[in-house]
Design a protein around this nucleic acid. Sequence first.
DNA 1: ACATTAATTGTGT
DNA 2: ACACAATTAATGT
Length: 220
Amino acid sequence: MPKSGNGLSCIDILRQNFEYLFEATLIEEICKSGRLQSVESDKVLIDVGDVISHMPIVISGSIKVMTEDKEGDELLLYYLEFGDTCAITLNCCTRNAKSSIRAVVESEAKVIFVPVEKMEEWMVKYSSWRNYVLESFNSRLHEMIGALDNIVFNSMEDRIKNYLRDKVFINKSEIIITSHLEIANDLHSSRVVISRLMKKLEKEGLVRQTRNKIEYLGKI
DNA sequence: ACATTAATTGTGT
DNA sequence: ACACAATTAATGT
């Protein structure tokens, strides 16, 4: 029994948002096989090592995707927003491999979960689906390349700035609720380094901060 | 309202 | 990187 949150059925939401992207028959199929779910913040949708049985399509809210190394340190890869789907999931599930990523809900989201078998079936059957999947694969890849050269070529200070800017954008709020420790985990750094740099950014007037809250004062 | 505790943040070495 | 101090939020009495 899928919760739709605001009383809209799955098919209404799909029609509303994907009308011009998918043909009507495909929308019906997605509705039949997929299940719509509202998920609260911090819920872990997919964890490292999980076997993927469903792929997510994000309707609203945002989802944070990261990897984890063997010491348990994380690295933020990219965010998923409206209309996005997770490319790595696609890769994993078609070959029935285990997930190398973790997906956590960043801000309360509505997500449609589609079983893997259907994905493949639709890839052949609907060109709109094929395009959607390939397109999404492509943009995820570009985001990851962006994240990579951010890491390689930018200083930690710039990485924090980018991180804050992204978070403001993704949550559509200048107010960021998070701790220095969380930022450190996301950026694969240490808490002390983040605290020092955040203090500096505060002095420069880019942010104002109180405990667990950062107010972004720069341009977006 | 106050004291206790836990978590977060700041700083010096 | 580590240790510790300072600050703040949460909780119980």
